[in-house]
């Protein structure tokens, strides 16, 4: 399959890339890993007039801890997230999630920024970012602006990124001691999109009381979904059969999956509840370590 013809640009600086976005207008697409964009172009679901390849811009791939935040460059590859010692220290959830994204070759190309900017509720990182209460940095001609993750996803392939902006950084607050996080998705085969996926981060105090909770759901809603009622059901209480049951019930009620080749709506709601329970227990276990 061959994509429709396009103009290829490979800017060497961020400023140049932003200028090119303005030059081509709405017909330009930014390419980072390209593993969502190129397949769509080959299938002719996307036919941009210009592809602006940002891979030649230095300084967009990094993972660092600064000002109480872990900052990840937009062009950081999945394989770099997978093997990062810094992330492993605070966020074992990244090892959980990257292992389940596509396969090693795709992870050598795919980037965190691209995964989020694509705005696909079937992607796994949006739910993780919801659970971790991250924010994303968009850089445009006017400079940078920080967008909380809850205000980032708008609709099917739609995000808060404005034309002329590039997602350059992801910021994740370093959680306090007593925090654990975990992700799992049900998939038909290795590397598939989630039938349903659940990301959880919990902070538990020395009395066993949950003081903070973040729960994100993958591919069971038109936009990546925060399971807010499930989070509320946990906060201020110890983890118990009762709170687990409520959190699971709320998540399965509040999501809005559609029946498709991966399963019926009813099935997806049920499995979402099961995974919510399991991921709460796994995050809690990691929080206690």
């Amino acid at each position: 399959m061959i994509a429709q013809s396009f103009q290829y640009e490979s800017p060497q600086t961020l400023q140049e890339a932003i200028e090119l976005l303005h030059k081509y207008g709405d017909e330009a697409k930014i390419m980072s890993g390209g593993h969502s964009l190129i397949p769509m172009m080959k299938l002719r679901f996307a036919a941009p007039e210009a592809v602006i390849d940002i891979n030649g811009i230095p300084g967009l791939a990094y993972i660092k801890e600064e000002d109480g935040m872990v900052k990840i460059g937009g062009l950081t590859r999945e394989s770099e997230l997978e093997h990062s010692d810094l992330l492993a220290k605070h966020f074992p959830i990244f090892a959980d999630v990257t292992k389940l994204i596509a396969d090693p070759q795709v992870r050598n190309m795919g980037t965190l920024g691209g995964n989020l900017a694509h705005g696909d509720a079937a992607n796994d990182h949006p739910a993780v970012m919801l659970a971790l209460r991250a924010s994303v940095v968009a850089t445009g001609a006017e400079g940078e602006r920080e967008i909380p993750i809850d205000e980032f996803f708008y609709g099917f392939y739609m995000t808060a990124l404005q034309h002329g902006e590039i997602l350059t950084e992801i910021r994740i607050p370093v959680p306090p001691a007593g925090t654990g996080n975990a992700y799992h998705k049900l998939e038909r085969k290795v590397g598939d999109y989630a039938t349903t996926g659940v990301a959880v981060q919990l902070t538990i105090d020395s009395n066993g009381i949950v003081t903070a909770a973040g729960i994100g759901l993958t591919n069971v809603n038109p936009v990546p979904l925060r399971a807010a009622r499930s989070e509320d059901a946990l906060i201020g209480k110890p983890i118990s059969e009762e709170t687990l049951k409520l959190a699971a019930q709320y998540a399965s009620e509040d999501c809005s999956p559609s029946s498709d080749l991966r399963g019926t709506e009813e099935y997806k709601r049920h499995v979402t509840g099961v995974l919510v329970k399991r991921m709460i227990l796994k995050a809690a276990e990691r929080a206690m370590q």
Partner: peptide, 11 residues
């Protein structure tokens, strides 16, 4: 290792 069917030659 990458899948060369999903990478452009110009890349």
């Amino acid at each position: 290792s990458i899948k060369s069917c999903t990478v452009l030659a110009v890349q």
